[in-house]
């Protein structure tokens, strides 16, 4: 029972962190990044290299993975997405570009995996670093990775709130996301902001990968296996809100783990390979019932309130107001 609890909470939190990054880059670039999970797999291999190859504490891999995956995401944005967007590429070509980058990264990660095995004789496929972790209170106690994962997720939720709503950099970030050219005319270097956001979401994914490999397994194939889950989590959350993404990621993650274990009890072990059906169902149900995701429930209410306030203001001064068009 406790194992399912740890499984569910760690997996769900890791998923939530990944969904936050995916939603953040989607909000900024309007491109769903199909290579987002490969940032996490890079983090897994950073964990393997730090611990098994270099013999250091696996927790040291957290900052290293943050930097490495962040740099990779930055390269992807600055070297590929931004250039295509400057050339006014269509959304389809941008999506295909992220898919292509994903395939490229899977190749690279496989090379890394084989390189580690051949050079250092370390198992580099379906590896787990769980045995390296510290368990507080001895066998059956509290694994440190569980605490670190919870702290990371809570820190992320609070940190993002602080960044976006309490610092002028975060406010500029929200402004730049809403209206890039207005932000620029007001002196905000939107390129720096977007690069920062891509770096951050890549780096977070890298850390999520480290934590993943410390409880579950690490393997290049996870890039494809986890993709439906992080898209499902982001879609359930609304795909453009970081808080929606946390909620959606947690929900999808927990239903995957708990749902599968319930189904195993009911139907037998043969259901395990069908686990990805759960995120797909979550995705489909959300798109059918609540296309704007969970966050829509909140924004709907807020919007209604804003419209009433605006109407009141205008009635007071009797001005006629045009609806805003597009343009700077």
């Amino acid at each position: 029972m406790t194992i399912i609890l740890f499984d569910g909470l760690i997996y769900a939190s890791v998923l939530a962190v990944l969904c936050v990054g995916l939603s953040l880059t989607y909000k900024i670039t309007s491109v769903p990044n199909f290579a987002h999970t490969s940032f996490a797999i890079l983090g897994m291999y950073m964990a393997l290299i730090m611990s098994k190859v270099l013999g250091m504490s696996v927790y040291l891999a957290l900052p290293v993975a943050f930097a490495a995956s962040g740099a990779l995401a930055l390269f992807m944005y600055y070297g590929i997405i931004r250039i295509l967007q400057k050339k006014k590429s269509s959304l389809i070509s941008l999506i295909i570009a992220t898919l292509a980058f994903d395939m490229f990264m899977i190749g690279v990660l496989n090379i890394i995996a084989d390189g580690i095995r051949n050079t250092y004789q370390v198992n580099s496929r379906d590896f787990t670093l769980r045995s390296l972790d510290i368990v507080i209170g001895g066998d059956g106690g509290l694994p440190l990775v569980f605490i670190v994962t919870m702290v990371l997720l809570a820190g992320l939720a609070f940190g993002l709130y602080y960044l976006l709503y309490r610092t002028s950099f975060g406010m500029s970030m929200r402004g730049a996301i809403e209206n890039e050219s207005l932000a620029q005319t007001l002196g905000i270097n939107t390129r720096t902001i977007f690069c920062f956001a891509w770096f951050l979401s890549g780096g977070l994914a890298g850390m999520a990968g480290v934590l993943m490999s410390m409880w579950f397994q690490g393997d290049p194939s996870l890039a494809a296996i986890m993709l439906p889950s992080i898209f499902a989590g982001s879609i359930v959350g609304g795909f453009s809100s970081v808080y929606g993404a946390i909620l959606g990621g947690l929900l999808v993650g927990i239903s995957e783990v708990v749902g599968t274990s319930v189904l195993i009890d009911l139907l037998g072990y043969w259901v395990i390979p069908y686990r990805p059906v759960i995120p797909f169902i979550a995705m489909i149900v959300t798109l059918l019932v609540l296309p704007g995701g969970l966050i829509q429930l909140i924004t709907k209410y807020k919007k209604r309130k804003n419209i009433t306030m605006k109407k009141a203001e205008e009635e007071k001064e009797g001005s006629k107001e045009e609806e805003d068009g597009v343009g700077a």
Binding site: Y165, M171, E178, I188, G327, A328
Partner: peptide, 26 residues
């Protein structure tokens, strides 16, 4: 664009000249 402000010029656009989702203070 973002550096032009430093030359002592500012520009108020015809439309969408404030961030709608941000409060006035923000």
């Amino acid at each position: 664009t973002h550096a032009i402000l430093n030359y002592g010029i500012s520009y108020m656009a015809q439309r969408k000249n404030v961030f709608q989702d941000l409060t006035l203070r923000e």
